[in-house]
C-alpha cells in the first residue's frame, strides 16, 4: 500500500476514492473477509461488466454476484453496465479485457452460443476464447394466456393452436429473445404455429397487451407476470423447461412433453481466456461458494432463478449443447 504514496496527487485520490465509492454498496466488513479464499489476493478494484442496462431485469443477478464477490475477495467490485447488441457488446468487453483477473462479467447462452454463428467477427467463437467461470442460474419462460380466453390447460391451448395455424397471438419481449426462441422451439417440435408478436419496452408492453386482452397469450419470466397471475388476469399454462420449477411446481413442463423444447434464459459469469492459474483457481472456488451461499440462493428463489453452479468444462459443455438448438431454430426461419 505504501507504493501509493509515490503516485501523483490525483492517482492517490483516485485509488482511495474508488475504494470509498465503488458503486456496489456491498463493501461493509470487507476486511474481515479478506484473505479467506484461495491464494490469489486482488489489490485493486475488480470490474464486473453487465451486458445490460442499469435497472434492467437482468441487472440484479449480476449485481448480486458482484456484491458477494466483493465480500468474498475483500476488494471493491465495480459494476459496469455495457448494454446493447443482444449482450454481445458487454460480452466482447469481458472477453477482450486483460486476462489479469481484474475484469469479469455476466453473459448468457444466446450471446455465447447463438451470436457467434450469426456474427463471425465476434471475438468469442468457441468456449476456448474465454473462461466459463460459473453458471449463475436458469430462469424459465412461462406460457400464460389472458384469463378471458377459453383455454384452461396446455392441451386445450395446443389443440386450439393446431386447429388454427398462425391464429393465436403470442406476445414476446422481442424477436430473438428467450421467450420468442422458446416458442419457436415449441413450434418446431410440436408442429403448431403461433402468431408471435414481438413487443419491446422491456417486456412491459407485451404484458400490458396480454393483460388487456389485445393478444391471447404471452411468454415471459414468472416474476414479472406474478402479480397478474395472482390478480386473476393471466392464467399460466406451461413452462418451457424440462426440470421442476419450484415457483410453479404443478404446471406441465413443455420441455418434457416435447423432447428438447426447453429454453430457459441461462446466465453465466465469464472471464477472459488464459487467466493466470493461481487467480483462476481462486475465482473458480470463490464463485462456486457464492452461488451456493444462502444469500445467493435466497436471491435466486425470490427472483425466479433455478441455480446450478456448474463450472469450466461442464459449463463449456452446456454452452456447446445450446449451439445445435440455436442452429435448428435459425435454420427453421430460412
Amino acid at each position: 500500500m505504501n507504493k501509493h504514496h509515490l503516485h501523483g496527487a490525483f492517482a492517490v485520490a483516485s485509488a482511495l476514492a474508488l475504494v470509498a465509492c465503488g458503486s456496489d454498496g456491498g463493501s461493509g466488513g470487507t476486511d474481515a473477509a479478506a484473505g479467506e479464499a484461495g491464494a490469489w489476493q486482488p489489490n485493486r478494484p475488480i470490474t464486473y461488466i453487465i451486458p445490460y442496462g442499469t435497472g434492467g431485469s437482468t441487472d440484479p443477478i449480476g449485481r448480486q454476484f458482484a456484491s458477494q464477490l466483493s465480500e468474498e475477495l475483500g476488494v471493491d467490485v465495480v459494476v459496469e453496465n455495457r448494454e446493447g447488441g443482444a449482450a454481445t457488446i458487454g460480452t466482447t468487453g469481458i472477453v477482450t479485457a486483460q486476462p489479469d483477473c481484474y475484469t469479469l462479467g455476466l453473459s448468457n447462452h444466446t450471446a455465447l452460443a447463438n451470436q457467434p454463428a450469426l456474427n463471425p467477427d465476434l471475438p468469442f467463437q468457441t468456449t476456448d476464447d474465454y473462461t466459463p467461470l460459473v453458471k449463475l442460474g436458469d430462469i424459465p419462460v412461462v406460457l400464460a394466456v389472458n384469463a378471458d380466453t377459453p383455454w384452461q390447460t396446455l392441451e386445450e391451448f395446443l389443440a386450439a393452436a393446431e386447429a388454427d395455424p398462425n391464429g393465436i397471438g403470442y406476445a414476446t419481449s422481442g424477436a430473438g429473445g428467450t421467450p420468442d426462441t422458446a416458442a419457436k422451439l415449441l413450434e418446431i417440435r410440436s408442429g403448431i404455429e403461433l402468431n408471435r408478436v414481438p413487443f419491446s419496452g422491456g417486456g412491459g408492453e407485451a404484458l400490458t397487451a396480454a393483460v388487456s386482452g389485445e393478444i391471447e397469450s404471452i411468454g415471459t419470466f414468472y416474476p414479472s407476470m406474478q402479480g397478474f397471475v395472482e390478480s386473476g388476469d393471466l392464467r399460466p399454462l406451461g413452462i418451457f423447461y424440462d426440470q421442476e420449477y419450484p415457483l410453479l411446481p404443478d404446471l406441465p413442463l413443455i420441455g418434457e412433453q416435447f423432447e428438447g423444447a426447453s429454453m430457459p434464459a441461462a446466465y453465466y459469469t465469464i472471464a477472459p481466456a488464459n487467466l493466470d492459474e493461481e487467480c483462476r483457481d481462486t475465482l473458480v472456488e470463490v464463485s462456486q461458494q457464492i452461488v451456493e451461499s444462502e444469500e445467493f440462493q435466497q436471491f435466486a428463489e425470490e427472483n425466479g432463478y433455478v441455480t446450478d453452479p456448474i463450472q469450466l468444462d461442464e459449463l463449456a459443455a452446456e454452452i456447446d449443447d445450446y449451439r445445435p438448438v440455436f442452429e435448428e431454430i435459425e435454420g427453421s426461419d430460412a
Partner: peptide, 14 residues
C-alpha cells in the same frame, strides 16, 4: 483536476 475528481471520486462515475 477538480472537475475530474468531482465526477470520478465524489460521484463514482467510471
Amino acid at each position: 483536476v477538480a472537475i475530474s475528481a468531482f465526477f470520478m471520486e465524489l460521484l463514482g462515475v467510471r
